[in-house]
Design a protein around this nucleic acid. Structure first.
Length: 425
RNA sequence: GGCGUGGUGGCCGAGUGGUUUAAGGCAGCGGUCUUGAAAACCGCCGAACCUGAAAGGGUUCCGUGAGUUCGAAUCUCACCUACGCCGCCA
């Protein structure tokens, strides 16, 4: 969410931000309405507070007269009248406020200056590591490899839960467990993240805090009776951990990581890249989250991205780092690097990580602040997050990239001790 | 699930309708003293918002939301949450 003051002072900046995302046509009317509502909100507040000050004087005098043993019926009548006016102004204020808030909730974050303008076509490949294998056209897709090795049971996953739910079996399940341990070990021991084990179910306030709600409600699994949501990523619980809190500056940067399942309805995505493990409703992920000062968030983004890259390098998977253009950058993000890994069997670069700095967009929604120094005013932190990494697509890529002529699959050296073998067969 | 007791500033904690402008303490900041530090003493010390060029003025906030009242931290109701006991249960 944006600072409501931008509607007064820096409407042009908001407009320009939407333009860079190619969303100005869609959002300009919304901005104008918000600006108008914000003016009305302020005038209501000004009037309301003058009335409240007046009433405070009245009621205080009532108290004084009572104490002196005198009548105050005239003041009480005046107070009652003031109360009616105040109630009306309060209503005007709160409805304007709710309306502005609702509009602000629909506005995506402003991207940083170095983020290229425009849509997906303006994405910029920053660097690449490793090389796709030259015999890619001979490689089978991961669903065939996985089924043949008895690692994946897509059919029974669909039977027990529905399409898009995968059963990993045998060495496949062991691979999931190995990846989890390997990634968490590297992030905690080598990169200094605190490991967290968090709920997979969160409340509405948490989903609003990180920006999934209200705009993207249709993408979430919702539990009606308790009004709870299945997390689409552990970014949600990890970032909401410090909702409504004031951190000490000495605690920053704060680095957290968690392994969780992630749940996505993927409403409207039917038919696109749906085979095998490419797009599923439930997948595992190790997530990195950081809380930083505004001054350090961009350097911390580079660091966090490099932490995700380390995993890919240990897994010996060729990948590239893509700086997303403004129009392709997520709703809450100010700057995002996608990590894409090559899967030769399907012949595609798969997005296995998205590393973002959210500036103060989430911090403002979730009210997460820090105190720069003792006695100073609290400021909003910057929040960052990145997958490191998303399992299902990594497994797809591992199977395809590691496929050998005899149909077995090579296990990268760093993973061997975690999986207990050097070849999946 | 039932009954009971709580939720007050960064932390602890007093406060049962009107000088609450939320006592007091801890922590923090500044000062006196000291070669320096500690101790002692003195002062300052919550957040958000409106208005204003500024100085300043004003409003709101005692778990959340409604209500009663001229006036609510205080009274009423609902909800959230913590703890205790009972019930159920892996």
């Amino acid at each position: 969410m944006h600072d409501i003051r931008l509607l007064r002072d820096q409407l042009d900046r908001l407009r320009d931000g939407m333009r860079r995302r190619k969303k100005l046509d869609e959002l300009a009317p919304l901005l104008d309405r918000a600006e108008e509502l914000e003016r009305d909100r302020r005038s209501a507040i000004t009037e309301l507070e003058a009335q409240q000050a007046q009433r405070n004087r009245l009621t205080q005098e009532v108290g004084e007269r009572r104490k002196a043993g005198r009548e105050a019926t005239d003041l009480i009548a005046a107070g009652r009248a003031a109360g009616d006016v105040i109630a009306a102004l309060e209503h005007r204020k709160s409805s304007a406020e709710a309306a502005v808030q609702a509009l602000l909730y629909e506005l995506p974050n402003l991207t940083f200056d170095e983020v290229p303008e425009g849509g997906e076509e303006a994405n910029r490949i920053m660097r690449a590591w490793g090389a796709p294998r030259p015999d890619g056209s001979l490689i089978k897709p991961h669903w065939e490899i996985g089924e043949r090795l008895g690692m994946l049971d897509v059919t029974r996953g669909a039977k027990i839960s529905g399409s898009g739910f995968i059963v990993y079996r045998g060495i496949g399940a062991r691979l999931v467990r190995g990846l989890m341990n390997m990634m968490l070990d590297i992030h905690t021991v080598e990169h200094g993240y605190e490991e967290c084990s968090v709920p997979l179910v969160v409340n509405r306030a948490s989903m609003t805090g990180t920006g999934q709600l209200p705009k993207f409600a249709d993408d979430m699994y919702h539990i009606n009776e308790e009004d709870l949501f299945l997390i689409p990523t552990s970014e949600v619980p990890l970032t909401n951990l410090y909702r409504d809190e004031i951190l000490d500056a000495t605690e920053l940067p704060k680095s957290l990581c968690a392994f969780t399942a992630c749940f996505r309805r993927e409403a409207g995505a039917a038919g696109k890249d749906t085979r095998g493990l490419l797009r599923v409703h439930e997948f595992d992920k190790v997530e990195l989250v950081k809380y930083t000062t505004p001054e350090t968030s961009l350097t911390e983004l580079e660091l966090l991205t490099s932490h995700a890259e380390v995993i890919l390098q240990r897994l010996e998977l060729p990948y590239r780092v893509v700086l997303l253009a403004a129009g392709d950058t997520g709703f809450a993000s100010a700057k995002t690097y996608d990590l894409e890994v090559f899967a030769p069997g399907v012949g595609k670069w798969l997005e296995v990580s998205s590393c973002s700095v959210m500036s103060d967009f989430q911090a403002r929604r979730a009210n997460i602040r820090y105190r720069p120094a003792p006695g100073e005013k609290p400021r909003f932190v910057h929040t960052l997050n990145g997958s490191a990494l998303a399992f299902s697509r990594i497994i797809a890529s591992l199977l395809e990239h590691g496929q050998q002529p005899d149909g077995s699959v090579h296990v990268p050296e760093a993973l061997q001790s975690y999986v207990g073998c050097s070849t999946l067969r």
